[in-house]
Computed example of a mutant assay.
Amino acid sequence: MNATKQILIAEDQTDIRDLLALNLRGAGYGVSETRDGPSALALQTEVGHDLLVLDLMMPGLDGLEVCKTLRSRGDHTPILMLTAKSTELDRVLGLELGADDYLTKPFSIAELLARVKALLRRSELLRAAQAAQSQAADAGAPLVNGELEIQPVKRVARVRGVTLDFTALEFDLLLYFAQHPGHVFSRGQLLNAVWGYTHDGYEHTVTTHINRLRAKLEADPLHPDFILTVRGAGYKMRERPGH
């Protein structure tokens, strides 16, 4: 499977770029390399890689600008962002612009390979699920929970009649909750189910995404109606009214 997957590395530090390319090729992936943002955009347009590894700070265009540009073009290729910055602001900004995951330097090669594998697997599962849903007789049936309506195939969510703007991961997380109303999930369970991996120390990613979901979904994010905190256990989507 790996041999058919093409990965673009955009990293301006030669030693890091060489190390990443060496190990990704060793894992069986096809690899393209560049050191700046404009070249990354050109290569992605020309080749259409299966996954992008973008450094946050690059000449020309930084990783966030590359990510923003690709998403504005409708390119939802998985993006793994590499950053020397570990502040919550940087993580939230990257997620807002559509990055799928983060690694903060320094990181281990084993962890990088695990993240790459998980993002590719998640992308494949998403495509398979969409194909299966499109073939199902009831594929168009929305999930409804009070004022919340989700159309899984079209990947559209509305609350109180207003269409919401979610990143790919935010939508996947919301959909997972909506498919299991009333079920309580720990952050680790959500990380494994939605992101496709479990790694100690990265459960804050789930918290960040839930906060962002609430900011867009809830009338009062501090007193949510849909995604509820179960103290000491995790989170759940409220039961559907009448159930």
Score class of each variant (00 low, 15 high):
130 Q>N: 11
96 E>V: 05
34 T>V: 12
96 E>Y: 09
15 D>K: 14
120 L>K: 07
39 S>I: 01
20 L>V: 12
196 G>D: 09
201 G>D: 12
23 N>W: 08
148 L>V: 02
49 H>Y: 03
202 Y>Q: 14
72 S>R: 12
171 F>W: 02
169 L>A: 13
192 N>A: 15
2 N>M: 10
16 I>S: 11
221 P>Y: 07
206 V>E: 00
44 Q>V: 03
102 Y>Q: 02
49 H>D: 01
219 A>M: 06
202 Y>W: 00
20 L>I: 13
172 D>K: 02
122 R>A: 13
213 L>Y: 00
110 A>M: 11
115 R>F: 03
198 T>E: 12
223 H>Y: 08
123 S>E: 14
201 G>W: 00
138 D>N: 14
57 M>P: 03
44 Q>R: 08
119 L>N: 06
162 V>Y: 05
177 F>R: 00
90 D>P: 04
126 L>N: 11
162 V>K: 14
160 R>C: 10
123 S>V: 03
133 Q>F: 02
25 R>A: 13
163 T>V: 13
186 S>V: 04
118 A>D: 09
114 A>R: 11
17 R>D: 11
221 P>D: 05
131 A>D: 13
127 R>H: 15
157 A>N: 02
166 F>M: 09
86 S>G: 15
45 T>A: 15
82 L>H: 05
155 R>C: 06
58 M>G: 07
124 E>V: 09
72 S>V: 01
194 V>Y: 03
242 G>V: 03
134 S>N: 11
119 L>H: 00
183 H>S: 05
179 Q>V: 05
196 G>N: 10
47 V>G: 01
176 Y>D: 08
116 V>M: 02
204 H>I: 14
63 G>S: 09
122 R>L: 04
94 G>V: 09
17 R>F: 03
225 D>K: 11
42 A>P: 00
132 A>W: 05
65 E>K: 11
102 Y>T: 08
38 P>I: 09
159 V>Y: 07
105 K>I: 08
105 K>V: 07
211 N>A: 15
106 P>Q: 11
195 W>N: 05
242 G>Y: 04
7 I>P: 04
111 E>K: 12
156 V>D: 04
112 L>A: 10
113 L>D: 08
212 R>C: 01
92 V>K: 13
96 E>T: 10
72 S>W: 02
185 F>L: 02
138 D>M: 10
55 D>S: 04
22 L>T: 14
97 L>A: 12
230 V>Y: 04
165 D>I: 07
240 R>Y: 02
108 S>R: 15
97 L>F: 13
112 L>W: 07
182 G>Y: 04
130 Q>D: 12
18 D>L: 15
185 F>V: 01
240 R>G: 07
47 V>W: 00
52 L>F: 01
84 A>I: 08
52 L>V: 08
97 L>H: 13
214 R>V: 01
181 P>W: 01
